[in-house]
Design a protein around this nucleic acid. Structure first.
Lengths: 225, 225
DNA sequence: AAATAAATTAAAGTTCATTTAAGGTTATCG
DNA sequence: CGATAACCTTAAATGAACTTTAATTTATTT
């Protein structure tokens, strides 16, 4: 699950990010409305969390612009006080939920889970490409006959690949999304995991394979052999 | 037993929550009708308690919407005064019981207990996975031949696991649902109970086992050996 | 009030995902 | 056709994540 968190109080933002990460969400943080809009429009999130009080553009403005641009991702608003007016306006503009500060972390997590669940009622929670399915619930990779479990990193990489097959994903994108921009690990780690995944895919007689594009990254390809 | 309590008077809500917790219910509290509806629809409670007078949506509206969405969970209404009209309307809309404020805590507990009992007349009160059954009534874990009693925490954890076998449950989800997010206890406590459960399962020659998924949580798996 | 059971904490032991490192392979280009 | 850079693979090392046991605190029962 990918979350975009737009919250200008760095301390709160960091705390939330840490907790979300620990709960296996992958999270991007931005600190003003303009960034929020930018990321919301260009990246592909499962949930967007917008603080209302933010520099540049308020959360409400971001919300409005996102919806006008056809972004349908569930959005949770954080309202500073119990500003009922803001809440109502937010819901009118197409927010899916709101939460007023201060809030209990447990409540935020519950709502995010609920939003995720609501989403997954509509979108299936297995991705299937070729003869291979990837189960988002339990990280299981399977063909018609057999299945095996993927590790955390393996899963995340393959989810990116299978999420948009045919699309080219750069090594940097892997690093950034899975290891975090500031990770100290070397690029080699991506190669290693690609190797692991290929081994597992071929052990399942997959008719898809991961193709390297020199100097750029990787694509998933169906192959008929 | 999981209870959803929808009551906008924070003081009362807190008091009730404390008492229910003390009586071994796990309880979520919400403070307006919209939240109540949201939680009622997305989470899986054994009992829902709805105050009638609430912001956003009245308890009666929530009740109606829940029933229209096919939620069959027993619902107890709290009516502010002795508003006979509301009571009748509530029962018409599918409430299972009502209680008028002010009420004695003992009475509320009794009614909740009764509803729980009534519920378990209809819904099967044993979960069976593999050769192992878990009795929701008396916390008994058994195979064909023998049985043993589980402690409270042990039971709750195993219920979560056996409730959705194959599904991955994160350590944080255990913490949150069983210990409450703000509990001071360490994550280690989950590990300890997993260990206890495994010991008890294997003492019953279970053909199910709890598998750890590193960095995420645990799944229940059937194994054939 | 003692005995029993349950829940928590602490700490030492184990495992396995992740990382590092290093030697091999393949593509591209002058 | 080498030479270089980009990528691949394997295997060992690391350390965080998990497991287990046992001691301690807390609650419940007798």
């Amino acid at each position: 699950m990918r979350i975009l968190l737009a919250e200008d109080e760095k301390e709160l933002s960091n705390a939330l990010a840490a907790i979300f990460k620990h709960n296996n969400y992958s999270i991007d943080t931005v600190f003003d409305g303009a960034e929020a809009l930018d990321y919301g429009l260009t990246e592909n999130y499962d949930i967007i969390i917008l603080d209302i009080m933010m520099p540049k553009l308020s959360g409400l403005e971001v919300l409005e612009k996102l919806r006008k641009n056809g972004i349908q991702v569930p959005i949770l608003m954080l309202t500073a006080k119990s500003e009922v007016g803001d809440r109502i306006q937010g819901l009118d503009l197409g927010a899916d939920d709101y939460l007023s500060k201060p809030f209990a972390m447990g409540e935020l997590l519950a709502r995010v889970r609920a939003m995720g669940r609501r989403k997954s009622e509509f979108t299936p929670n297995v991705i299937k490409v070729g003869n291979i399915s990837l189960n988002k619930e339990n990280y299981e990779l399977s063909n018609e006959h057999a299945s095996l479990r993927l590790g955390n990193k393996e899963y995340q990489m393959l989810e990116m690949l299978m999420g948009n097959p045919k699309r080219l994903i750069s090594t940097e994108q892997f690093m950034e999304r899975i290891w975090g921009y500031d990770a100290e690990s070397e690029i080699n780690v991506v190669w290693v995991y690609i190797s692991y995944l290929r081994k597992k895919l071929s052990s399942l007689d997959a008719d898809i394979k991961i193709r390297a594009v020199r100097g750029v990254g990787y694509t998933l390809e169906e192959c008929n052999d």
